[in-house]
Design a binder for these strands. Structure first.
Lengths: 109, 109
DNA sequence: GGCACGTATGCGCACGTGCGCATACCGCGC
DNA sequence: GCGCGGTATGCGCACGTGCGCATACGTGCC
């Protein structure tokens, strides 16, 4: 399952944040670190992971290095995942409502 | 990032295999274990993870328990991921070709 | 009730990984 | 060359997690 490799890279809150920030356009490491409230080495490390996964590209600009998404399609995948998540939340909410309903019907359970 | 929770569940080779097997219809734990060549406790554990993530549902049938996908949309997400993966492989292949080309042009690098 | 089958759970271990920290590398300006 | 800002790398630790194994639970059958 090669997909697992891609998914492992995405299965990290920090990297997902990086992904969403880079969705609005390329950005340098330092600014990313500030935007995420994380340390620079940490961001750099995550970017290295995403880079070796072919998910982002690095481009040098003077002393700074700008990272950008290689395949914006990953955002589509994230959107689909978000849909799955939302439907799951809806189901949970509905289940909670149903539970409350049955509470009303049988107050002394 | 709630998405990370969903992605963590998917970021496992075994669970992806389970996902794809269940894509062809509900199945019992034992048959899943055989199909995957994994131990029954292991499969049961992964199913528990996917179940508490709201990804699969369990239905009792006699002594056996049949699991099925809750939201087939996750398969769509997997398909998108697969597309991302394939494009990545293509890029790598292209890069390899380019490298071979430059080797031909500059044999004594 | 006892038994066999299918499934779930608890435990221990090995391994991967995210983080902070210190530090090395690199390119620019003086 | 030297210092400085920007980035990458190495190290150690704490934590989560997948696995095998043994075992408990639950269900149908005799």
């Amino acid at each position: 399952m090669l997909q697992a490799e891609v998914l492992k890279v995405l299965a990290s809150p920090r990297r997902l944040e990086i992904l969403h920030v880079l969705a609005d356009g390329p950005m340098e490491v330092g600014r990313l670190a500030v935007a995420l409230g994380a340390s620079q080495p940490n961001v750099s490390q995550h970017l290295a992971v995403m880079r070796s996964a072919g998910m982002v590209e690095a481009e040098r600009d003077g002393r700074e290095i700008r990272y950008r998404l290689v395949d914006p399609e990953v955002l589509t995948a994230c959107a689909v995942m978000r849909g799955v998540l939302e439907r799951r939340v809806d189901r949970l909410a509905r289940a909670a409502d149903a539970a409350r309903m049955s509470d009303l019907l049988t107050p002394v359970s």
